[in-house]
Amino acid sequence: MSDVVVYSIVSLSVLGTLAAIILYIIAQKFKVYEDPRIDKVQEALPGANCGGCGMPGCRPFAEELVKADDISELNCPVADNEAMGEIAKILGKELGEKTPLVAVVKCNGSPEHRPKTSHYEGASECRIATELYRGESDCPYGCLGLGECERACKFDAIHINKETGLPVVTDEKCTACNACVVACPRDIIELRKKNKKDRKVYVSCINEDKGGIARKSCKVACIGCGKCVEVCQFDAITLENNLAYIDSYKCTLCRKCPPVCPTNAILEENFPPRKEKKKAGDSAANKS
């Protein structure tokens, strides 16, 4: 009995040692040199592998950062300035200026605003529904509500609101990785400049139909009347294809445009309540 134990211990140890030697030789022989900074950079990156930088994951992005001479164009949307600063320190390179962005859903077509005219039954994917027809409402531009963006988000930052059937972005969680923007087959989601206290003013509609048709399909559609363009003093609003667009880089959040919109298509969020609605409207009218 004891013989068996001794033999097995000896033979297994010999085998184990042999294997270790072989592995060591192979590891030495086939060693590939890798810049040790790649590992360090990768460690500093958030490791979300979201693809927001345009690379397949964090490792390739780290390689790219190490390889590039100028990293001001390379930007991880998820990493905060501190993390990027650390990376810049590791590499000894200059950082680019980074404007924080946030995803904004530009459709406000809840069933209340945009009556359902048909019932969709099929694979629950926006991409499939949009190829089939214009969707459950009459608006061929609006959100289909099947949650492609929700599934694409790796940061739990966008969710379909069950009541409105529309996606809602949690600003604190959004890293502006662009995944939802790519996922949405109707290009409803836009990355806009992040403002103080998450304040935003935007046209929550992308309907390019003529006013009458747009209004018919959705009560809060942009009808392209141009009133907001007139009231804006900063040239931030443009009107194209019956649709107003507010440039988030030019907008100063003066809040003159929301009150003049006849369909309430321009939304203002996270502002303190207006003192008196009437007064705000008056002053806007006076200045224009």
Partner: peptide
């Protein structure tokens, strides 16, 4: 009264 159902073939 009810909405038409639309689905792919």
């Amino acid at each position: 009264s009810k909405l038409l159902t639309v689905s792919p073939s």
